[in-house]
Design a protein around this nucleic acid. Structure first.
Length: 457
RNA sequence: GUGGUUGUAGCUCAGCUGGUUAGAGCGCUGGAUUGUGGUUCCAGAGGUCGCCGGUUCGAACCCGGUCUUCCACCCCA
């Protein structure tokens, strides 16, 4: 048993059916990325560690897969570092490359490196695997695909509006009804923190607030207190805990709550613009929801924050996310370039479609016709016929061995092949072929011309 | 990284409080049917019970470790 091969934790093999289903999702995403004007790029599977490390917070560093240096990497390690036996500190001496953790940071690196060849605003999309050294659980893998679309070089809020439409277009195409596109704005969160006098605790505050739907009001308050946020401060944000009504309604409440904060007011304005525009333009099947508790994601979001959640009856959490980052390329030395983008979680969308039974049946791909193998001469004649069928776009194959009929027929049967052609001794002599319909069980003898015509649609 | 959970034939799973040769269904191979599948019937192959160690006269079953699965936390797609 132990001799059996295995694959690493959190990785998967994909069978032909699974690949077909994944491609179905990917092509829907790709189609809309392209109709929205995005162009594809690809970046390497692994980057220099320094490109990735420190970009996702402390937690992120832990989850980055590090690649061991080639050669005799230990001999180059300094004695003091070696004797220290501190893994974190040792890492940079024995590993200088790492598997990419997301598509956004490598994209920022790409923009900086290729700034002279890019025309701004630059709209790119990217569909590639990423890796995280996380513990697997439902909808969470160590290798998974992200499908990202980002725009750099434009501060326009119309981009945000278009991304909402893009999410809607893709999920509508995939026939997933009832997707919620949640939207928030970092400036609103900062504004709230400012108004309650906890500006220095912005991250702790937002992380706690984000858990509202999970641990409830009391839980959130408890966590905030534990993080050193005062009771008066928590009292001031009380309205947030029972935030309800229409998006416009929420905006009004936020506007008055944040009237003393310049930044917060800006955030309310930005959100108002996006929500107004979407109200006028309309969405096909998703709904846009202002959610002040939304604080997910990376520390670099500065404006809009997006998160897409699956329809209520599917418990999978978020299937996409994104936001605006005013200065992402700044970390690589290119200041003043704003970016905004969204991401689709392919593997999670797959689980949603599977659970809702939304994959089309036609994805079960098979060949159109199997030729039974009766021996050398017969196989040769079969391959002649197969050649002209293939030229006409028919998926045809010859059973490779002159095995027993039962076996060959059984193979056709198991692969759901709709037609079988038999060219045996008799047919060989008469230059004919027997075409059998496997679902009806009927068959007829045809000459070669009639055979190729039979498959013309 | 923390806590819990799972592992028996190719697959899905039984297996009593530890007691002789570990079972079923499906699948697989062969035959009934030497050029006609999906149905039926008959026969057969296939397991060092995840791995390592311990307790015991005796371990699939108890204990420890390890790997794997799934779940929750952290975090996230």
């Amino acid at each position: 048993m132990s001799k059996k091969p295995g694959i690493p934790k959190g990785t998967r093999d994909f069978s032909p059916v699974e690949v077909a289903k994944r491609q179905y999702i990917m092509s829907a995403i790709k189609k809309h990325f392209e109709t929205f004007g995005f162009q594809p790029i690809e970046t390497p599977s692994f980057e220099n560690s320094e490109t990735l490390m420190g970009k996702y917070g402390e937690e992120g560093d832990r989850l980055i897969f590090k690649i061991l240096n080639s050669g005799d990497y230990l001999s180059k390690v300094d004695d003091t570092v070696y004797d220290d036996r501190n893994s974190t500190r040792m890492t940079k001496f024995i590993s200088e490359k790492a598997l990419k953790y997301d598509l956004t940071v490598p994209f920022a690196r790409y923009v900086v490196m290729h700034q002279n060849e890019i025309d701004l605003p630059f709209k790119r999309y990217q569909i590639q695997p990423v890796w995280r050294a996380d513990r697997p659980q439902k909808g969470r893998f160590r290798e998974f695909y992200q499908c990202d679309a980002d725009v750099v070089g434009s501060n326009s809020l119309w981009q945000e509006v278009e991304f909402v439409q893009l999410y809607d277009a893709v999920f509508n195409e995939l026939k997933v009804d009832g997707v919620t596109i949640k939207i928030n704005n970092r400036k609103i969160l900062s504004g709230i923190a400012e108004v309650i006098g906890a500006k220095d605790k912005l991250i702790d505050f937002t992380v706690a607030l984000d858990k509202l739907d999970k641990i409830g009001e009391e839980g959130v308050k408890k966590e905030m207190l534990a993080k050193g946020i005062s009771e008066e401060a928590i009292d001031k944000v009380q309205p947030l805990f029972s935030f309800s009504g229409s998006n416009e309604n929420k905006l009004d409440q936020l506007a008055s709550l944040l009237s003393n904060s310049e930044e917060g007011t800006k955030g309310v304005e930005e959100l108002g613009f996006i929500i107004d525009a979407i109200n006028t333009l309309g969405l096909k099947s998703s709904k846009l929801e202002l959610d002040v508790t939304l604080a997910r994601g990376l520390n670099y979001y500065t404006g809009a924050i997006f998160e897409v959640t699956a329809p209520e009856n599917v418990k999978i959490g978020s299937i996409g996310g994104g936001g605006r980052y005013d200065d992402l390329t700044g970390i690589f030395g290119l200041k003043g370039i704003s970016g905004v983008g969204i991401s689709f979680g392919l593997d999670r969308i797959y689980l949603v479609l599977e659970e809702l039974g939304l994959f089309p049946d036609v994805l079960e791909d098979t060949i159109d016709v199997l030729f039974i193998n009766f021996g050398e001469q017969e196989a040769l004649a079969s391959l002649k016929a197969i050649g002209s069928l293939r030229a006409a776009g028919v998926k045809a194959e010859l059973y490779p061995d002159a095995a027993k009929m039962k076996k060959q027929m059984g193979y056709a049967n198991k692969r759901n092949v709709p037609f079988v052609v038999m060219i045996g001794g008799e047919e060989l002599a008469n230059n004919t072929a027997v075409l059998k319909n496997m679902t009806e069980g009927t068959q007829e003898t045809l000459n070669m011309d009639e055979l190729s015509k039979a498959f013309k649609k």
